[in-house]
Amino acid sequence: MGGGILPVALLIVWWAVTAAQLLPSYRLPSPAAVVQAAVDLQTNPLYPGALFRDIAISVQRVILGFLIGSLIGLVLGSLVGLSRTAEILLGPLLGAIRAVPSLAWMPLLLLYLGIFEPPKIVLITIGAIFPVFTTLSTALRHVDPHLVEVGRAFGLRRFELLTTVQLPAVLPSLVAGLRLALAQSWLFLVAAELISSSIGLGYLLSDSQNNSRVDRLFLAIILLAILGKSTDALIGLLERRLLKRWG
């Protein structure tokens, strides 16, 4: 409950500043104007349902990219974290790929994959791989060797050992990695949609900038905050379920 105090206070200050007309509305729209902008977008007779469609497509891109990326990160992180050979073979290459600022892939992805969904999802995937890969491979290297030996002594091998001992032991790091990956996914979603898109919240941002619709910019930013926080909360739920399953 305490976490809601500051957002509500901020909302009141925002409302008070706009109600007192301390700033012109083309600089700072009122909360009501932002709500109105949402309603207008959604009920525009030319493009009915535009707002929900923007939200839906952005959420879909993030979830797809995040799931594919974290799965790849999970596999690569497990390999490099557990196998000396994999670390020697893959470590330097993956380090170099990670060193490329992910946005640098975008022009190439657009050329190779066209302008529709694939380049955006691949970019988000790239963004989601590395936080999971890095945290997981590092954490796996530091699992208590005594526990691993117990697992071995009781007949667990490779995959079973990974799921019974090693992954549960690094669960906090894994969840931290997933959280970072999710934040990266939203970051790269907006980047991809700003560069090339005709729908989505990033498109709403760039379109509103071109039309100087500050109310819609506020709307998009607030939506991104709410969606980002909600999906992050889902990871928290996942963490609790995993703890129960492995607990």
């Binding site: 005594h146 526990l147 030996e149 117990v150 697992g151 002594a153 009781f154 019974t164 001992v165 549960p168 032991a169 669960l171 703890l243 492995w246 607990g247």
Partner: peptide, 21 residues
């Protein structure tokens, strides 16, 4: 079967699930 000097129980499992291992 081995029992080590340290109990080496999996800290995230209950006693019962540790024994079941």
């Amino acid at each position: 079967a081995v029992a080590f000097q340290e109990p080496r129980l999996l800290p995230w499992r209950t006693v019962e699930r540790n024994v079941r291992l």
